[in-house]
Structures are given as C-alpha cells and as structure tokens.
Design a protein around this nucleic acid. Structure first.
Length: 420
RNA sequence: GGAGAGGUGGCCGAGUCCGGUUGAAGGCGACGGUCUCGAAAACCGUUAUGGGUCACUGGCCCAUCGAGAGUUCAAAUCUCUCCCUCUCCGCCA
C-alpha cells in the first residue's frame, strides 16, 4: 500500500497514477476518513492522558468523587476510541485498494498493444514444415491428456503422462539448479495454502479474491503463485540489513480460478487452473531494488537462452502492468505451432508496496529507524508454457521432439521424445 | 482427535495466584564512554515498535506483554473466544 502520508501530501499524484493504470483510487474518501479518524483519536488520547493521570492519583487516595469523574471520563474516551477504530478499519480497507505508483520509465498506455518490446533474443525458428501446436503434438505422443483431465477434474486441467511428466520434472530441476547454483537463490519448499493476511501482503486481496481458490469454511487460499509464501516468508520481521538482498526460489504448483478469462486460451496447456512454476523472489533495500529487478529479469532470461528458446522482453505499459507493480517486464517465448509469443515469465518490482502490507522491514544501520524492504519477483519460469515452447520449437517432421541438450541429463540421457 | 503445559522487549528470562508510577526486574548480546600503545577484563551509560503533538538534532502524550472481546476508575496480571508452540496418548504419509 501507499503511505497515508503520501496520499495526504500529494493526492493528485496518487489519483493520476491510478488513472493511468486504469484503476481507481478512493483518494477523496480516504482523505475524509483520515481527518475524521484523527479527530476522534486526538480527542480520545487527550481524555486518556488526563484519565491516566487521575487514575494514579486515585490509587493513592480513593476519593469517591474522583472515582465518579474517572468513570465518566472512561466512558467518553472509550466512545471516542470506538469511533476512531471503526473509522480506521474502513480507512485501512480503502488504503489496501489504492494501486501502486509506477516508475518514470514505464510507458504510458491503455492496454496490451501499448507495451513496448525492449529487447529480443534469437529468432523465429524455420522448421521447414508446418509446425504443429503443443497440444496436437502432446496428444499424438500420448504425453498430454486434456480429455481425461476434464473428466477427472474439469476444464482447464491437464494430465502429463510418461515422458511428458518427466519433461516437466526435468525442466523444473534444471531451472532450480541454475538459480540455486549459479544465480545465488536459496531453494524453498513452501506452503501451498496460505492465510488471508499473506494474500493481503502480496496484494491478491482484497481486490482480487475472485482470481484465487479459497478453502471452504477456512481461512486458507490455494496459492496463485509461490510469490505469496516466498514474499511473506519474512512478514512482520525486521531483517538484518547484512542479510539483504534475500533471494529465494521455489518450484510449486499454482492455482488460479481464471475468472474472467472465459473463451481465452481454452485449448492446450496454456491457461490452466493448475500450473507449475519456478518462482524467484528478492527482498532488497530501497537503493538496490531497481538494479536487482534488472538482474532478476536477466536470471529468467538466462533459462530461456540455455533452452535455446527465442523470446522478447516487453515493458508493460501503465494500463497493462497491474495494481501492485511499480514496473513490470514480461518475457514472451516464441511458440511456432501457435504462431505467437507466450508469456513464460513476468518480472516485477514493487518497491515498498507489498512490504508495507506485510509489515516487512530492515534496519539500514544500527540504531537507525527501520524501513520497509523492497520486493521483487519473477517467474523463472512458468513450467507449462515453457514446455509448450520447447515442444513446438524442437518438434521434428515425424512428430517426435528433440530434447534440448541442457535437459538431456535430467531426462536420463533421453535425446528424443516419442522415439521408438 | 484426547489430556496437559505454555506464548513477555534482539535473545534468555522474572512478574500473572493476591489488578495500581511495570513499557515491564535480572542476565546475554549490541552500541557509546572511562581505562589501555592497542585489545581483553572491569566499570559507567545507552539499547522496542507504531501513532499523535510541541517552544522540535530534544521533550511530552497515547497505544502495544500471541490476537480479539469483556470486567474495572485502572489489566502483562481477572473472564471468554480464537491462533500458535511444546509434552504425552491415539491416528496417519
């Protein structure tokens, strides 16, 4: 969230940023509630101070008249405090609904078409035959099954079978090994169900409750991304500055309701209720966050390069970057069969927006007051779509698929999927 | 799931029965100082967070002893609900 102080001092800036993001910020109501809240709080505190003083006096000398006066003061301070708290609750809820500001380098735009290609690696492969989609390939090879998944779970689910399942495991292993051994991330095995406070911490709540699955009757949500447990790992903590930047990675399934995505990507292994992802999360100081954001993006790109997948790095424009992000890059891998780029990674920097919600701070120096950490995260990468790009890029005319060299050791030396 | 014991400041740990200058003893750690060529030891001092306010490199006020609610003039201390941790039993991957 944004500091109340900022909204008070520069409401126009907050309003303008929200508007350019295609969001709304309840700035006026916040300012009004803020004033009301302060009024009640000030009144309550003034009474309470006097009440505390007289109460000590009463402890010495139990005077009946004084007791009566104290009783009356207690009623008044309690009433004011109750008002203050009620207003504060509404205020806090509204504050959680104010979108983040954005970095000056973010292009202003309304939607997808205003995103900007920042750089590109490799080029579209020329296979020399008409490429097939990953789902055609996958079903023909017997390594993907959507029909049975629909029967077992429903639409937007999938089975990976045999070499398909093994490929998924291989890709995950490969990514984790690169991030932990070469990029300096610490591997984490995390809860896949988290409480509401954590969902608020990373800003899935309160605004985007419909996008996630909730456990019936319990304060538990299926994680839409391991960003949630990883970023919240240090919630409510004051972290030693020497430990920063903290770099975590995790391989987990992710669950999304895909509400509002009806009709989009209904075919294939692209937009599922459950998909898996290797996630990277960094907690940094304010000074280093933009730099660490670029490095994290490079870490994700490294995976694509080693897999030999052509991709573009796009800067998301204001209208397409999201509620909580300060700046966001999407990594788009080329899928020859689908004939389009697939988003295989989304890397974002949040500044202190998430850290304020999760109350996650660090002390810049001994004795100095604590400051909120800056949070960064990115997929490194989304497994499902990376597999799509691999299958479509490395497919051969006979419908089999070459296993990229870096993955072969993870596939027990297998060189071709579907070979007989 | 059953029975029991607990959750106090950066950490350890008193205080809770019998409510009242206890935001909280003591110890450890850390930081500053004295001493020293330097260091150690010893000694002295400082050492939570959030908010408000002022005559603002400091003072004053409010809140916070797992969370919430209640009793009371007054709650770390009493009551209730919830969460978490530990021990034993049961069950289970």
């Amino acid at each position: 969230m944004l500091p109340l102080e900022l909204i008070r001092k520069d409401p126009d800036r907050v309003r303008r940023a929200a508007q350019l993001k295609g969001e709304t910020a309840p700035v006026d109501e916040i300012l009004r509630l803020d004033e009301t809240w302060r009024g009640y709080l000030h009144s309550a505190e003034t009474i309470k101070a006097e009440q505390n003083r007289l109460s000590k006096e009463f402890a010495q000398n139990r005077d009946a008249a004084l007791k009566e006066k104290l009783r009356e003061m207690a009623d008044r301070s309690k009433a004011d405090l109750a008002e203050a708290e009620a207003v504060k609750r509404r205020l806090d809820d509204l504050l959680l609904r104010v979108p983040n500001l954005f970095h000056e380098s973010v292009p202003v735009g309304e939607g997808e078409r205003d995103n900007v290609v920042l750089r590109e690696w490799g080029s579209k492969v020329d296979l020399g035959f008409t490429p097939r989609t990953h789902f055609d390939l996958g079903e023909a090879l017997g390594i993907m099954d959507f029909e049975r998944a629909a029967r077992v779970a429903g639409s937007r689910f999938a089975f990976l079978i045999g070499e398909g399942a093994r490929l998924e495991r291989a890709v995950a292993q490969f990514m984790l090994d690169v991030h932990t051994r070469e990029h300096g991330y610490t591997e984490v095995w995390a809860p896949l169900l988290v409480n509401s406070a954590s969902m608020v911490g990373t800003a899935q709540l309160p605004k985007f409750a419909d996008d996630a699955f909730k456990v019936d009757g319990q304060d538990l949500w299926l994680i839409p991304t391991s960003e949630v447990p990883l970023t919240n790992l240090h919630r409510e903590e004051i972290i030693d500055v020497e430990r920063l930047p903290l770099k975590y990675t995790a391989y987990t399934p992710c669950f999304r309701s895909e509400a509002g995505a009806a009709g989009k990507d209904t075919r294939g292994f692209i937009r599922l209720h459950q998909f898996s992802k290797v996630e990277m999360v960094k907690l940094t100081t304010a000074e280093t966050s933009m730099d660490e954001f670029e490095k994290l993006t490079a870490d994700a790109e490294d995976i694509l390069q080693r897999l030999g997948l052509h991709y573009q790095v796009m800067v998301m424009c204001t209208g397409d970057m999201g509620f909580a992000q300060y700046k966001k890059y999407d990594l788009m891998a080329w899928s020859p069969g689908l004939g389009r780029y697939l988003e295989v990674s989304s890397c974002s920097v949040f500044n202190d927006f998430q850290a304020m919600r999760a109350n996650m701070r660090y002390r810049p120096a001994r004795g100095a007051p604590p400051r909120f950490v800056h949070t960064i995260n990115g997929s490194g990468l989304a497994l499902t779509r990376t597999i799509d790009a691999i299958l479509e890029t490395y497919q051969r005319a006979d419908g089999t698929v070459t296993v990229p060299e870096v993955l072969q050791p993870y596939m027990g030396g297998l060189e071709v999927i579907g070979a007989r």
